[in-house]
Amino acid sequence: MTQTRTDYRLSQLDQLEAESIHIFREVAAEFEKPVLMFSGGKDSIVMLRLAEKAFFPAKIPFSILQVDTGLDFPEVMETRDRWVSRLGVNLVVASIDDAIKNGIIPDAAKISRNRLQIPTLLNAIEENGFTAAFGGGRRDEEKARAKERVYSHRDEFGQWDPKMQRPELWSLYNGRLHEGEHMRIFPISNWTELDVWDYIGRENIEIPNIYFSHQRRVFTRDGMLMSETPLNPLREGEVVEERTVRFRTCGDITLTGCVESTASTIDEIIDEVAVARKTERGATRGDDRFSEAAMEDRKKEGYF
């Protein structure tokens, strides 16, 4: 047994963990068929860790859902597979390519894969009858997220209506749904980027190695350093060179930029994050740059 505590105080990280675990258990108890949306990024890996802790020594009582864009980093897929096999959870993969092949979504070369994730995800939720989908969104990430509830209601079309959100009081969550609707659940709403890194360090959590400093062949596009890959052909005037970089987020390989960094341990990353001058999405995510309301618009349609 650990030592008796006399001050009865919990650090803020322990309080955040307790709140998140409470949310995971509440959803598992009240929803018929929850699923955890897994992107392979650090936030969704922290979610897996929290779910593991919430139900230990039982297995996580729900499946994991990943939308395969066909443009994911191979390192991220490897990490995903190791987590899935260690936890013994069921993995459901919804592939954009399959959705196009089966005529579920149009094969529109002009629509970005990022946009195509939305119908693919909504189709997978509907097809599998998932009633609640956990997401790793944090309120510190972005303006629209700052106003989103922990239990975020989606109508039959998977849409979010920011003006019709249910009031959310105390830790009393309302999971009522009608046929065909589902709930998005954000257990780490109150975590900041720094909290996530702190937790990864404290819990010694395995994350994809592209988060750590490495040598990579990159080119500059729209002010971001992009990875050289056959999936993302060079445009005129773009030059590839080798740099020492790391990624701050793990998204679509054609839209996610990296930053120059020599941070090769969690502690070094934490130091870097603590003094960072740009938000992680603003710095390295092409998908959030299209307009000031890019995230708000995608969320209304049913984005993660």
């Binding site: 803020q12 309120r139 510190d140 303006k143 629209a144 920011p162 959100q165 709403s189 109150n190 708000e296």
Partner: peptide
Amino acid sequence: DGLRSEREQGITIDVAYRYFATPNRK
């Protein structure tokens, strides 16, 4: 200011959560 409709109308329509920290407290 969070949502587009709020920026357009110059008002706040909903509870928004914000985060900051000093060395001893979040």
